[in-house]
Design a protein around this nucleic acid. Structure first.
Length: 575
RNA sequence: AGGGGUAUCGCCAAACGGUAAGGCACCGGACUCUGACUCCGUCAUCUCAAGGUUCGAAUCCUUGUACCCCUGCCA
C-alpha cells in the first residue's frame, strides 16, 4: 500500500479540502440539506445525526457509496454524527462474511463511524417491548392466517383488503399468543404479529402490515436467543429512534413506507421522532449496478469474485485502482435529487484521472513493443537520465531512467506510410524519445510475412535530455523503454463486462448480455523503476493511461497491472 | 378504489415569480517533452404538452402526456 500512503499526504489532503470548500461555495444545497436547514431553523431538531444501515447480505457497490457518502457528508457538514448500523433483522439472508467486507469498504471510502457501530439485532429486546406496548394499546394483534390467506385478505392495488378474522382478539389473548411466539410455541409461518391500522388504506403498506414473523434460525449476532424477528418496517424506525437519528435517508422505493415509519415512531411513543427523506439511487449507464445481477455474475463464474476489477462493487473498484477520493468526487458531482437518473461512466473516469493527475508517478511502459536499434549509439552503453516523476508536481521528485542503443517503442507509434497529421515515427521523420534524445528513423526490417519487426534509427547526441541546443523543434514525442533493463510485466485491458452493443445490457427477458472479451491480458515492457511496485500502487503510464498493481495476481517475479482508465485522446487516424 | 413519485442541454444538475448556474461528454482554437493536462471559445430564446393568471412564469393554476415505485412472513 506504499503509494496509497504516498498519494494521501497531508498536504494533498489539505489542498483537496480547500478545493472542496471552494467548490461548495458555488454549488447550491441539495434538497435534503435544504430540508435539514429548515428543520434546524424551525427547531424541529437541534442536531443532525445520520446513519448508513446496510443489511449484511452481500457486498457493497457504487450505489451504496452514494448513500454512504451522502449520509456521512451530511453529518460532517452539520457537525453531526454518523452511525454505522447493520440492519440484520432477517437471519435467513445474512452472514458475518458480509459484515466484515462492508466495514472494510466503508472505512476505505473514508466514512468514519468512530465508536458508533451498531446492530439492529442489539435492539431486539427494545423492539419486543415496543411490540408488547402496541398490543397493550390495541394497535397490534396476533394473526393466524396463512401466508396465502394474508395475501388474499390484503386486497389488490385497486381494491381494498378485508379484515383478518383474528383482528379483534383481546389484548390479553394477543399478549399471551405473542409471548408464545417468542417462546417457540409456533412453527415458522404459523403466526405473525400485525399492526392494526387500516385494511382499506389506498397505501398497501398500511393494510395491517406484519411486524414480527417466526423463524427458527440461528442469527449471526444473537444466536438462538430469538425465534421471532421484526420486519424492516417495524424495526427500522425503532432503530433510528433509539440512536436519535434525525434524518433517516433512504432510497425512493421507501416513499410509500414513510406513513408506516411515522406510525411506528408515533405509536411507540418515541420522543424527537426521526424524519425519513428519500432520494434517487445511483445508476451508471450501460454498467451492471444491480446487486442481483452482480451476484449472478459472481455465482456463474463470469466475474472473478466480488472484487473483479470489471465490477462496480466497492471492492472491485478498489482492485481496479479507483481511489476513495475519485469515488467521493464522482458522487458529489453527480448530485442528489429525486429524479431517476443514470450517470455516465465517463464522469467516473474523469474523477479518477483528475485525482491521480498530481499524485501518481508518470512512468514509461510499452504496452505493445516494437524493437528499435539506434545505429549510431555506442554499442553496449547504458546511460542514466534523470527524469521528473510528475511534471506537474515537483514534490514527487525525480528518478534515473536507463537509456541504451536498443529500445522498445509502442508499435502504434510507427507508420511506414504515415497518414496525414501523423507526427510520430515514420521514415525520415525526427521525433523525441521522451526525456532522452531526438531520433530519426532510417529503415524498418520486416519478417517473411511483411510484419515490421525492427526499426533502425540514428540519434542526435546533442539533444540529450530531449531538447536540441540549436532550438529545432519536433512535433512528436514518444515514450520508450531501454531493452537491456526492461522489465517484463502483464497488463490488463478491461471492457464493460456487459455487452451493450444492442443498445442495452439486458436482453428482452431481462437477462444480462455478457461481453466475453471484457478482460484481455497482454505482455508489456516497463522501465526498471517499477520492479519494486507493490499491490495497489498506481501509476500513469505516460500517454497510455492510469494503471494499478493487481493485488491478487501479481507474483514476486511478475507484475500484473490493471488499466484503470486510458488517457483521453483527440488523435484519430483519418479514414 | 387505487396510492406514492419524477419530468430543465447527449448525461447529471441549479434556479424557490424578476427574465435558464455549473460539471461531465462533445466540438473548435491556443499551448505543449504525454495528440494528456491547462487555457480560451461554441454548446437550452428555452424548462414534457396545451391552455390560463401576471407587467413578468421552469417556478402559480387547469387539463393532459410519459416514465418509475407499491399487492414478500425481503430490506
Amino acid at each position: 500500500m506504499a503509494s496509497e500512503e504516498k498519494v494521501c499526504s497531508n498536504e494533498n489532503e489539505n489542498r483537496n479540502k480547500n478545493e472542496n470548500e471552494a467548490r461548495e461555495e458555488k454549488v447550491s444545497k441539495n434538497f435534503i440539506e435544504q430540508a435539514i436547514d429548515k428543520d434546524l431553523a424551525e427547531g424541529v431538531y437541534d442536531h443532525v445525526q445520520t446513519r448508513f444501515p446496510p443489511e449484511p447480505n452481500g457486498y457493497l457497490h457504487i450505489g451504496h457509496a452514494k448513500s454512504i457518502i451522502l449520509n456521512y457528508g451530511v453529518a460532517k457538514k452539520y457537525n453531526g454524527k454518523f452511525n454505522m448500523r447493520f440492519d440484520d433483522t432477517n437471519p435467513t439472508k445474512e452472514d458475518v462474511e458480509f459484515v466484515n467486507s462492508i466495514k472494510e469498504d466503508i472505512a476505505w471510502l473514508g466514512a468514519d463511524w468512530e465508536d458508533r457501530l451498531f446492530f439492529a439485532s442489539d435492539y431486539f429486546d427494545t423492539m419486543y417491548e415496543c411490540a408488547v406496548k402496541l398490543i397493550k394499546k390495541g394497535k397490534a394483534y396476533v394473526c393466524d392466517l396463512t401466508p396465502d390467506q394474508i395475501r388474499e385478505y390484503r386486497g389488490t392495488l385497486k381494491e381494498p383488503g378485508k379484515n383478518s378474522p383474528y383482528r379483534e382478539r383481546s389484548i390479553e389473548e394477543n399478549l399471551r399468543l405473542f409471548e408464545g411466539m417468542k417462546n417457540g410455541e409456533c412453527r415458522d409461518g404459523e403466526r405473525v404479529l400485525r399492526a392494526k391500522i387500516d385494511m382499506a388504506s389506498p397505501n398497501i403498506n398500511m393494510r395491517d402490515p406484519i411486524l414480527y414473523r417466526v423463524a427458527h434460525i440461528t442469527h449471526h449476532n444473537t444466536g438462538d436467543k430469538w425465534c421471532i424477528y421484526p420486519m424492516y418496517d417495524f424495526a427500522h424506525p425503532i432503530e433510528d429512534a433509539i440512536e436519535h437519528i434525525t434524518h433517516s435517508l433512504c432510497t425512493l422505493e421507501f416513499e410509500d413506507h414513510r406513513p408506516l415509519y411515522d406510525w411506528v415512531v408515533r405509536e411507540c411513543e418515541f420522543e424527537n421522532p426521526p424524519r425519513q427523506i428519500e432520494f434517487a439511487k445511483m445508476y451508471l449507464n450501460n454498467v451492471v449496478t444491480g446487486k442481483r445481477y452482480i451476484k449472478k455474475l459472481v455465482q456463474d463464474g463470469i466475474a472473478d469474485g466480488w472484487d473483479d476489477p470489471r465490477l462496480v462493487s466497492i471492492s472491485g473498484l478498489r482492485r481496479r485502482g479507483f481511489t476513495p477520493e475519485s469515488i467521493r468526487r464522482f458522487v458529489e458531482m453527480s448530485g442528489i435529487s429525486k429524479a431517476h437518473s443514470t450517470c455516465e461512466y465517463a464522469m467516473l473516469e474523469y474523477c479518477l484521472r483528475d485525482d491521480l493527475k498530481p499524485k501518481a508517478n508518470r512512468v514509461m511502459a510499452v504496452l505493445d513493443p516494437l524493437k528499435v536499434v539506434i545505429d549510431n549509439y555506442p554499442e553496449g552503453q547504458i546511460e542514466y537520465l534523470e527524469v521528473p516523476n510528475n511534471t506537474e508536481n515537483p514534490d514527487l521528485g525525480t528518478r534515473m531512467v536507463p537509456f541504451s542503443g536498443e529500445i522498445y517503442i509502442e508499435r502504434e507509434d510507427f507508420m511506414e506510410e504515415p497518414v496525414k497529421k501523423y507526427y510520430r515515427m515514420f521514415p525520415g521523420n525526427e521525433v523525441r524519445l521522451m526525456n532522452a534524445y531526438f531520433v530519426t528513423c532510417n529503415s524498418c526490417v520486416k519478417d517473411e510475412d511483411g510484419k515490421i519487426v525492427e526499426l533502425h534509427c540514428t540519434y542526435d547526441p546533442a539533444s540529450r535530455g530531449g531538447n536540441s541546443p540549436d532550438g529545432r523543434k519536433v512535433k512528436g514525442t514518444i515514450h520508450w523503454v531501454a531493452a537491456p533493463t526492461a522489465v517484463k510485466a502483464i497488463w490488463r485491458k478491461f471492457d464493460n463486462i456487459a455487452d451493450a452493443s444492442s443498445g442495452s445490457i439486458y436482453d428482452e427477458d431481462g437477462n444480462l448480455n455478457v461481453n466475453t472479451d471484457s478482460k484481455l491480458e497482454y505482455e508489456c515492457l516497463v522501465e526498471p523503476s517499477l520492479k519494486d511496485a507493490k499491490a495497489f500502487d498506481k501509476f500513469q503510464f505516460v500517454r497510455k493511461g492510469y494503471f494499478c498493481v493487481d493485488y491478487k495476481d501479481t507474483t514476486p517475479d511478475m507484475l500484473v497491472f490493471n488499466r484503470i482508465v486510458s488517457m483521453k485522446s483527440s488523435f484519430k487516424i483519418a479514414k
